[in-house]
Amino acid sequence: MPENGCLRVGQMAPDFTATGVVDQEFKEISLSQYRGKYVVLFFYPLDFTFVCPTEITAFSDRYADFSSKNTEVLAVSVDSKYSHLAWIQTPRNQGGIGDIAYPLIADLKKEICAAYNVLNDDGEADRGLFIINPKGMVMHMTVNKAPVGRNVDETLRVLQAYQYVEANPDEVCPANWTPGDKTMLEDPKGSKEYFSAIG
Rank of each mutant, 00 (worst) to 15 (best):
Q160A: 10
I131S: 00
Y63V: 02
A75I: 11
A175S: 09
V158T: 13
Q89P: 05
E166G: 03
I97Q: 10
V165E: 09
V152L: 04
S191R: 12
L7I: 12
G199N: 09
K189H: 06
L129K: 02
P147G: 10
A13E: 01
H140D: 01
F16D: 01
A64C: 08
E124Q: 11
S30V: 07
A197W: 03
D79T: 03
A58K: 11
P2H: 05
L159Q: 06
N4H: 10
D121R: 14
A86T: 14
L85I: 13
G180D: 02
R127H: 01
K37W: 05
Q11Y: 10
A161S: 15
F16N: 00
P169D: 05
S67E: 14
L104Y: 07
A125I: 04
N93P: 07
N70T: 03
T142E: 13
G136H: 04
H140E: 02
K145S: 14
A64L: 11
K69N: 15
T57E: 09
K182L: 15
D122F: 13
K192A: 15
D170M: 11
F42V: 00
E111I: 05
V73D: 01
A125L: 04
K135C: 01
L129M: 14
G136T: 05
V40Q: 00
N133Q: 02
A86I: 11
D15N: 15
A115C: 07
I29T: 12
M184D: 02
V143S: 12
K27T: 12
A175H: 14
R8I: 09
K109I: 06
E166V: 04
A18C: 03
R62A: 12
K110R: 15
D79W: 03
